[in-house]
Amino acid sequence: MSADASTRGPAQGQQHHGNGDHGHGGPGHGDHGHAGHGQRTDIDWEAMADTLENAGELRLPLLRTTAARLRELLGPRHDVRRVLDVGSGPGVMTCVLAEEFGDAEAVAVDGTQALLDRTLARAERLGLGSRVGTKLAELPDGLDDGLGRADLVWSSMAVHHLGDQQGALDALAGTLRPGGLLAVAEGGLPMRFLPRDIGVGRPGLQARLDAVQEEWFAIMRAELPGYTPAVDDWPAMLTRAGLAEVTTFTTVLDIPGPLPAPARAHLHAYLSRVRETVAGSLPEDDLSTLDTLLSPTAPEGIAHRADAFLLAPTTVFAGTRASV
């Protein structure tokens, strides 16, 4: 599985696979099958590697803020020796955690070897190679396959790609040493990047994209092996996993227009994946609008619009294992 950071949905390989850099959490690069109404729920995380890494780069300041907040939650007396980034994607957050916890080993756990290779290359470039490791593990089975103990477990946009979310949280919490912290980035509000009326097609395009992505998400969840219906009450799920002092915080990526090239590339990748996965659920006029937004030459396209912005919140839920 690969997940660094992204809101949930067929196109959020980020936000918030993981860490806020995948934004897309995932069950590896496997295929969930094909949903009804022309919707595809298969995700090839290796093919999304550039997109995931770009998403993580965009969020670097927020990822560092998040890592600092996790240190605060652990408290000054907790000696952090080992950190797990579960569903790590290309490892942007893995390296941020290694930087924040300078005496710890940071281990990226993912089901896509190509993304783990990117993690190691990134760590070497940043001078972190001696403290960043990787573990190839498909989730959820990999949760029971020797992850080892940790003082901090981070997982971004990965748990919702597992059929039994509560079981996954139970397993992640079980890896914590006494006083350790489990933090997951999940749920939250959808990304916003265009005004309601963009001068092309009907106003309100983003609201309609939200609706079809919610349908995609429900189908994707229902097709997962071991799917167990559950209310997405993440604090309650962390509490049921045996954690205490459960808390929630949100960071917001806020890039005003005119957007820099990396932000435009991120939005183009997002819209491309929407076009690919949920085309069968959109009316023809909205498909035509999407094609205009994706056009590299159209002045109304996302590559050139002066009114495009990027506003993307990431919500983190965290809880602590009781000290013995």
Rank of each mutant, 00 (worst) to 15 (best):
G56S: 11
L205A: 12
L181Q: 03
R118D: 00
R221H: 07
L147Q: 09
G188T: 11
H268Q: 13
G56D: 09
F249P: 09
Q213E: 11
A150Q: 04
T315Y: 05
Q12P: 02
L74T: 01
R8D: 10
R8M: 12
S295I: 04
G242K: 04
S288T: 15
L60K: 09
R305Q: 09
M48W: 13
F249T: 08
E124P: 00
D233L: 14
T315Q: 06
A269W: 02
P27A: 02
A108F: 02
G38C: 10
A158I: 05
D254Y: 03
G56W: 11
R196M: 07
L181K: 01
T250N: 07
L120N: 02
L73H: 09
L310R: 03
R208K: 07
P203W: 10
L58D: 01
L238S: 03
L143T: 12
T250C: 08
L169Q: 01
G56M: 07
L52F: 05
A218H: 09
D42S: 11
Q12I: 08
A218D: 14
F193Y: 15
D144E: 13
L74V: 01
A168C: 14
L224W: 11
Q213Y: 00
R321V: 03
L172T: 06
H16P: 09
D285R: 13
L136M: 07
P260I: 10
A261R: 14
V153R: 05
T250G: 08
R202H: 14
P90E: 02
L182N: 02
L120Q: 09
L290P: 05
W45I: 00
S272K: 04
M220E: 14
A185N: 12
